[in-house]
Every structure is written in C-alpha cells, then in structure tokens.
Simulated assay, not measured.
Amino acid sequence: MNSYQFTYSIYQRPFRQPLITSHGVWKIREGIILKFTDSFGRSHQGEIAPIEWFGSESIERARSFCGQIGDRITTSQIQQIPDDLPACQFGFGSAWTAFDSIPSKVESEFEMSALLPAGEAAIDRLQALSTQGYTTFKWKIGVLPIDREMAIWSQLMTALPNNAKLRLDANGGLTEGAAGQWLELCSHQARIEFIEQPLAPDAIAKTIELAAKYSTPIALDESVATFDRLQHVYDRGWRGIYVIKPGIAGFPWRLAAFITKHQLDVVFSSVMETEVGIAAACRLASSLNLKRSLGFGVDEWFED
C-alpha cells in the first residue's frame, strides 16, 4: 500500500463576467488544488472543483474532508472516499493515477468547444472566438424569453462559420412545449450538434420521448452529472449523447470502465476548473479516444 505526502490549497477565481444559466448567476469559482509527493520526490496534482447544484458535494464539505486527512494519504484511503464526495473522488483519484499514467495527448491537441455568454452578447463573442480557431461553440438557452432567444439564435446561425457547429444548452430549464419548439426549429440545421439537457434532470422518460420524436440530437448533462446518476440513466434506457463532467463524476478509472463497457457517445465538459483539472480530464479523454470536441474552452471566462 503506497502512501504520499499530502498538501492542499484553496483558490478563488472570479469570472470576467458572471456566468448566467437557468440555475442562476455564478460570479466566483472556488476549488481546491491537491499535491501528492511520493518517496522518490515525484509530485503530481489533482483538483477538486465541486458544483453543488449539479449534484456534487459543496466546497465546504470538500474543504472539511481535506482538512481531516493530515499530511499523508494512502491508496487505501483514496479508494475509500465515499460516493457522496464525487469531486473529491476525481481530484484524489486523478492525482494518484497520474504517477502511473502513460504520456498522452496534451490539451492543445484536442479540439475544444468554446462557451459563449448567454443572450445577445454571444453574437460578438462567437465572431471573436471564430478568429481564434474554434469550430464548436456552446450557447446557453432557457435564460431569456423564448421568442427573444430564437431571434438571437437566428443571428448566431448567420454568424456561425459554415464549418462550425453549435451546441445549445438549456441546463434543464425548458418546459416540454419549449423543448419541442427548439427541437423543431433546429431539426433542419445540420450545424446544430445537439440540444443539451432540455428538460429537468429527472424527466428521463419525457426526454426519451422527445428524442424519438425529433431529428435534432439531444444530449444529457445534469441527468448524468454523478456516477450514480449516469448508471441510473443508462439503466432507464438512454442511448443518446452523454455530456459528462469528469470533475464531478467520481473515480476516473470507474468512469472510464463504464464508458468503455457500454460504448457510450460521450462529450467531456468543464466544471470551470483550472488547468490542473483540465489536464486530468484530458488524460482520461485520451485513454478513451473520445471523438467529439471537448467542452473545456473556458479560459476566456477568467481574469487569470
């Protein structure tokens, strides 16, 4: 049983502008950076970046857990982190497995999806990001009245380069009727990659019905945020796209095994983590040979 010297530090990263979704307004990303050092003096980092409203533990609970460990941690302790601490499972698990990981693709070698601001600000931002080489974009919907958002969507489609794709993310904020309107509107647009989480996370049966009714692809996000939810949704029969946030999806090796076993169509997505967490997610993505653009194009959102 290996053990490691253990230290951690807490960070706060203010957004350049608040991130607005159907969940509310997010102004500051708080998280924890972990550092493991082995007996040879080698060090690796991990990151705990919870999103409590997505179903992970709170930052307070994660901080309390780290504070109870002391200055050394064993592999047995890591493996025993409970499932109600999924962000801790990923942070500790990715720091530990980094010691044995095979060098893989670096972040810059992956195609990334850029996150646009909600509302009309997305139009100018899309044009700016297009010049930086991005060809996949995500835009939040379910924030403004639907007629206004559809008018903005029309402008976005005009501004969207012909070789680019747009992902619409409702964060579970649409009614069934509004979801149908969006799915119908996008049904003849090949550049719409998917509509993400149109209905509430527990509306799995209704979402499966919508997926069968409309040609626009649907992806699930909040519904599959943690590993237990991912298992539950698969068991309920979802065979569409899974948008998985590795940073709150628990132990990386368990997640990888599940994706591989069931051959899931997966998009890895950001929890607005730092480069430490993104690097860990990219290592995992490389091992799985994921095909879709990764949703980690979020650097522009932070002051640092």
Rank of each mutant, 00 (worst) to 15 (best):
S94P: 11
E107W: 00
S64K: 12
S287K: 05
Q68I: 03
T226N: 10
P103W: 01
T37Q: 12
F65K: 03
E57Q: 06
L144P: 00
L290E: 02
D221R: 02
A219T: 12
D228V: 02
S64A: 15
W253T: 04
Q263M: 10
S64V: 06
A211M: 09
P82N: 05
K291F: 04
N171S: 08
V25P: 00
A257C: 05
A122Y: 01
G173F: 09
G46N: 09
E273A: 09
A257I: 01
Y242I: 12
F92N: 15
D304C: 06
A170Y: 04
K213P: 00
T75M: 08
Y4P: 15
L144W: 02
F6N: 01
G91K: 06
S3Y: 13
F65Q: 13
V298D: 09
R239K: 10
N289D: 15
L185Y: 10
E30W: 02
G93N: 07
D38W: 01
W139D: 08
L144T: 00
L126S: 13
S101M: 03
R239N: 09
G240A: 07
P198V: 01
C282G: 02
L288H: 01
A249D: 07
I204T: 01
T131Y: 05
K140T: 13
I81H: 08
A114F: 11
R61M: 10
S108A: 15
D71N: 10
R29T: 14
G240D: 09
V267K: 04
I32A: 11
G55P: 08
Q127P: 00
H44C: 07
P145R: 14
F36Q: 09
G177D: 14
F15R: 14
Q155G: 00
E60N: 15
A256Y: 05
D83P: 04
P201E: 14
E222I: 10
S269H: 05
S270N: 05
G277Q: 11
A280I: 13
A256V: 06
L199V: 06
P18R: 08
I51K: 01
P145W: 08
F296E: 11
K140Q: 14
N163M: 05
A87S: 15
C282K: 06
R42N: 12
E57A: 11
E300F: 00
G177H: 12
Y4I: 14
K261N: 13
I152T: 12
I141G: 03
Q231A: 07
R63C: 06
Y4M: 15
L156Q: 03
F227E: 07
N289F: 13
F90V: 13
E193Y: 03
W96F: 10
Y234R: 10
S22N: 08
V143N: 12
T135M: 01
R61I: 11
A49H: 06
A203H: 09
W153R: 02
A98T: 00
P86W: 09
E149A: 10
V233K: 02
L284K: 05
F40R: 14
G55T: 10
L166W: 04
M157T: 07
R16G: 07
R254A: 14
F99H: 10
Y234V: 02
K261D: 13
G70Q: 08
V224F: 00
T131I: 07
W153S: 09
W153A: 14
I123A: 11
L230G: 03
D124F: 00
E107Q: 05
A151S: 03
L255Q: 02
